[in-house]
Every structure is written in structure tokens, then in C-alpha cells.
Design a protein around this nucleic acid. Structure first.
Lengths: 341, 341
DNA sequence: TTAAAATACGGAAACGTTTGCACACATTAT
DNA sequence: ATAATGTGTGCAAACGTTTCCGTATTTTAA
């Protein structure tokens, strides 16, 4: 890799000092318009590209944001990253993207690697296994800019972006009840997760409001193996006190439910109605029957995270990221899977 | 962001010179075991993290790989990136991930940004718009390590990883013919793309072998708007000489076909059989009827790209990446969408 | 006309590493 | 005994920027 021309060589070519050339390129007021022009045109001619590491070393910032997500194969997270990239690219920032694969040990390793300053900030959604958050508090206590979205750490005093999970859980459940469901199951990733807790509270409150009581055997927690999830759901569907409705707080488990039901004689929505948090709208309407969804504004979430960080990182003297939760509402789209027969 | 302790401070604490400490941490043979131990334990105690930029500047390498893909919301590309990460992480490398959004202008900008050495290599799959490849040849001519996968640039003499696209196109078409299809449509992303060309050749040869002739109105090229794709396919399905089989070389267009057919009275597989390149197996079997797929080994492709690069970058004096195409076979899974009635 | 201020630039330090070289001391060979 | 070798460590340069100073020249103010 032949590295191109550097500042010193460019300066020599121009018979100027490196400092002058640097200032000219950075549009300093100290340099006359005439020399600025000369420098810029020569820089273009020689295709001068400043060395990012020299600059990072000197300026102590990397123009890089780290994004840490639990998995890549998810329309939700893909869209969030797209949203982040949309904004950061406008500011010349680069994106390091890491997947934890829902593994808290990998999450810890990644976060620890990021403590050396390779990135100027982190945008993340924690893994479903994450309950000990010492690796994240340490990061935050060092003053490292950290933003959470969706799966947040409530205890870390920074800015978090979420959707109206409680309301969505509540409305989703209420919708099922209105469509005649009386035994509603709740599918989740992990009890630890912020989103699970909020959605579950909404679910419980909707049940209570309808005079229904939650039944413990109707809660299913996701594991990493798809086949096991499908089997667990099938078991539930085969049991004598099977549910007549499902609120899935995870895309993956809605799909698993569709798989499971293919292994039974039951029909959606006749025997079982289902509503799910789901981001892949194209797929939702192609499922058979089409799936009623709660869709989070993934792209906007990414954009908002990035906008906040760009403000913090590119403006001169910005305060710390405020300890607040910003809520962007989801949207419920009713399709065939919850239509009363 | 309070940067932690640096080498000089660590050395001062140990009453050693920075050079000795550096060598000790890098396990140099010149340093005695005794001091190594002392240095390492003190480094851990003070939580010393070497500054990556100082190191990159000095060593002229970044321990970073850039991955450039056409879109994030694709199970294929997501899995490829997962595969890449799996390998690179073992070697302590980081991943900058960029999406071109199928836009060649964005692709050019990204590639040009990467010329300054921010990444040690690029792994990429070109956008569907890419026909002028000067930005990529320039990169390669400068000696920048560049690896292509799936959507490759044949003219750039480096290593490319693809699947057996010709055979897959051939076998997929042959399968449709065996199931009774006589008018087979071909759906593609763009005629420029390497994968399109190969798959199309396979398609043509299979038609010829069966004594069928290709019909130009049965070729559909994808555009960026999903609705337009659906409409174009619907039009084709409504025309008097509509196809009785479809080979889709893109996941997106298979889904569009399912959408389109919902707007007609036609039934899969009775009136139309369809086979598609498709990476999301869970979805393929949930579609109604389930979709016959040609699945590319996405994760392995990512792993192979990364393995090759890691060898090149981490071993001392490696030759340039050889100009060769490495083929990893896809797998055809027959499901309901192509079952003869 | 002279002092003060503004303008335009150069020299050199600094960011935090790694590494070529020098060197002091201990060990071994002659 | 001296010379040659080996071992462990320190000094200083280098990577390519940015920026604090200093300074020579020109412009403005008195």
C-alpha cells in the first residue's frame, strides 16, 4: 500500500512550510486567500489525503462512532444502523459496527476494546443476557459518550431512545382482548431486558383492566436455538389450557409461532390470534395469514441517536449527554392474524 | 473523555524507560522475564490501554477492515458480515461497515474516503448501479488489498469469492422445466452485475437444452421502489403471454412476486412456479406456499474473505492477493412453490 | 514620522507509540 | 589477562498532523 503524498511533501512542492499548508487546508483566518487557493489546487492535483491517524493522535478524536447491536440479521437493527449512518456520514464520521450475538461476554470484550479511544462514542442496544452492567457503568463514568436505544440500561445516567413500549404492550393486548381472546400468552427475549419489562407491564395492565389474570405457563422466554423456540411454543399450543392469543415482543418468536402452528391443526386467527413487535413490514403482510404488527420507527431511532451525538461531538463546548429517556411512538398495523372470526 | 494512563506514565511508575515497557508489553526477546512480569502486572493494575492511533501512525496499519455492501437489510449480506466478523475478531481486527444503498455515487465516495489508510483492506460487493469501476481500479492499482464477494468486478485482478451462479441458474431453470414450466421469466437486479450475467447464462442454457427460447418480455429488472417492482411483476402476470415459471435472482423480487400474485387470481404453484436465490431460510419456509430456494453459503463466504485477508495482513511478507475466483457452491432446497400439480 | 496593530507565514513542540542504535555490565572464549 | 560475545536497558528518532509561539513585513493610528 503506497501511501500517497503527505503534508510535508505537499509543502515542499509549494515552497511553503507544513504549518502554513495545514492552516490553508483547514481554512484558517491567518492565511491569505491567494495562498489558500494555491494550496488547495496543489493538494487536489497531488491528491493529498490527510492521514487520519496522525490527525486523531493530535486532536484526540477519531471521527468514528461504534455501534453495538445484539444481532445483524434483524430488520430492526439493520434499519437503526442505516439511520445512524445517514446522519453520521453527513458529518464525515465512520461507523464501527459490532454484533454481540446476544452474548454478554462478547459484549464485555467489545466494550472493553472500545475504551482505548478508537471510537468517540458508542451507540448500543444491550444483549438479552446483559444483567451485570459494570462494563458499561465503567465506560460511562470515564466520561465516554454513550447512548442507548431500545434495549437500554436504565441505571446509567445518559440519554436513551426507546419506543412507547408500555403503551404498545397495553394496546396490543387490548386489541387481542377486543378480538375475543381470553387466554393471552406473552413471548419474550429475556426477563432482564428493559423492553421486556415495559411491554410486559402493558400486557399485565391490559389483562387486569379486562378482568383477566395472567397465567405463568403462558410466558415463554426465547433461547438462541430457533428449533427449541418452535418446540416450546408448539408444546404450549398443544397443552389443554392453550392460549387463544399471543403477544410476541420479539420478531423471531412471531416467526417461531408461525412455524409451530404449522405443526398443529390449529389455525390463525380462528384458534389463535397473534400480534407481534415486527419491523419487516414486507414480510409481515406476506405471512399467511398476514401478521398484525407493532412497528418501531427503527430508522428514526437511529437518526435521533446520531443527531444527538453529532451535536455533542461536533459543536465546541457541549454538556454531557443528559440523563433522559426519549420516546418515539411505534405504530400498530392490524392485519389478518388478529381478525375475529 | 479522560484518556487513561499512557506508556510514559506507566514507565515512570515502574522506573523504567518507555522503550523497555513497550518491548516488555510486546513480549520482545530483549527483555528479561522478571521485568516483563512486573510491567505486565503494573499495566493491568493501571489499566493501561495503548493508544490505537499512535500505534497505527507508527506502524502504518490500522487493524481495521472496511466492509462495503449494497444494503444492510438483507439476510445474505448480514450473514456475510457476521462471517467476516467471526474471523477478524479473532485477530483483533475491527470492522468499518458501509452501505452504498445500491448507489454508485455513494460507493465512490466511500471508496475514496478509504484511500487514506483508515482501513487496511476492503471487502466489498458492488452496487447494482456500478458499471464504471475506475474508483476501484485506482484503489487496486495503489496496492490497496481488495477482495470482492458475490457481486464482483471481473476486470480487477484480485481474489473474488462467488457461488456457482451459472450452475445455480441452470439447475434452477432446469428444475422449473422438469416441473412443467414452458415460459420462464427471469428477474434480476441489473444487467451489469456479475451475478446477473452468470445466472442468466445458466438460465439461457437450460432453456436452450430444453428447446425453449427466451422471451424478452419475460425479463424484469429491479428498481429501488418496492411498489414499482410489484406492479411490474403484476403487469407481466396479467399479460396474455404470462410466464408459468419464475427464476428470481434476487431475494427482494421473489417477495415482490408473492406480493404481486396476491393482487391476481393466480395461484402458486398451480399457475406459476417460482424459485429464487434466497438467504432467509426461516422466511422461505413460512411463505405461502413455501418457497423453493437457492441458498448461498453467506456466512462461509464472509469467513473465507476474512481468512484470506487475515493471512495477507498478519503474516510477515505475503504476496499480493492472487487474481482468482473462488467458488463456493449454493444449495437448492425444493419446497412447495415449484411442486408440479 | 513613529509607534502600534494587523497580516501572513515559519519553526518547533506535541500527541503516544515503536524501534534502531548505543551502552553498561556480565559471561564466556582465547 | 584480554577480547569477544551476550544480555538487559535507555536515548532519541520517526510516523503525519495541528497549533503555540515568534517574527518579518505591511498597514493603521497618533
Amino acid at each position: 500500500m503506497s501511501t500517497g503524498v503527505n503534508l510535508k511533501e505537499l509543502a515542499a512542492e509549494l515552497k511553503l512550510s507544513p504549518s502554513t499548508v495545514s492552516r490553508a487546508l483547514n481554512d484558517s483566518y491567518e492565511i491569505s486567500e491567494a495562498t489558500k487557493k494555491k494550496v488547495i489546487s496543489m493538494a487536489e492535483k497531488l491528491n493529498y489525503q490527510p492521514n487520519p491517524f496522525a490527525r486523531s493522535l493530535r486532536e484526540n478524536k477519531s471521527k468514528t462512532i461504534a455501534v453495538v447491536i445484539p444481532e445483524r440479521m434483524s430488520s430492526f437493527f439493520s434499519k437503526v444502523v442505516d439511520g445512524i449512518e445517514e446522519i453520521t456520514q453527513q458529518h464525515g464520521y465512520h461507523l464501527l459496527v459490532y454484533s454481540t450475538h446476544e452474548d454478554v461476554d462478547r459484549e464485555k470484550k467489545i466494550v472493553n476494546l472500545l475504551m482505548n479511544g478508537r471510537a468517540d462514542a458508542i451507540i448500543m442496544s444491550v444483549s438479552s443476557q446483559t444483567s451485570d452492567i459494570s462494563h458499561l457503568t465503567r465506560l460511562h463514568e470515564r466520561g465516554f459518550p454513550l447512548v442507548f436505544f431500545d434495549r437500554i440500561c436504565t441505571d446509567i445516567p445518559t440519554t436513551k431512545f426507546i419506543t412507547n413500549d408500555y403503551e404498545s404492550g397495553f394496546e396490543g393486548t387490548k386489541h387481542l382482548i377486543q378480538q375475543g381472546c381470553r387466554k393471552i400468552a406473552f413471548l419474550m427475549l429475556s426477563k432482564e431486558l428493559s423492553i421486556t419489562k415495559d411491554r410486559y407491564r402493558g400486557y399485565l395492565d391490559a389483562l387486569k383492566q379486562a378482568g383477566l389474570s395472567p397465567e405463568p405457563q403462558l410466558n415463554i422466554t426465547c433461547c438462541q436455538e430457533e428449533e427449541q423456540n418452535v418446540e416450546a411454543i408448539r408444546q404450549m399450543l398443544m397443552s389443554p389450557d392453550r392460549p387463544d392469543g399471543i403477544l410476541s415482543s420479539v420478531e423471531k418468536l412471531a416467526l417461531a409461532t408461525y412455524h409451530a402452528i404449522k405443526r398443529t391443526d390449529l389455525k390463525i386467527p380462528d384458534d389463535l390470534k397473534i400480534i407481534s413487535f415486527f419491523s419487516n413490514l414486507s414480510i409481515a403482510s406476506l405471512l399467511h395469514p398476514s401478521l398484525t404488527t407493532i412497528t418501531q420507527p427503527a430508522f428514526s431511532i437511529g437518526e435521533e441517536c446520531a443527531k444527538l451525538l453529532m451535536k455533542k461531538l461536533t459543536k465546541p463546548r457541549q454538556p454531557d449527554l443528559p440523563n433522559q429517556i426519549i420516546t418515539i411512538p411505534s405504530k400498530i398495523t392490524i392485519r389478518s392474524s388478529t381478525i375475529a372470526v
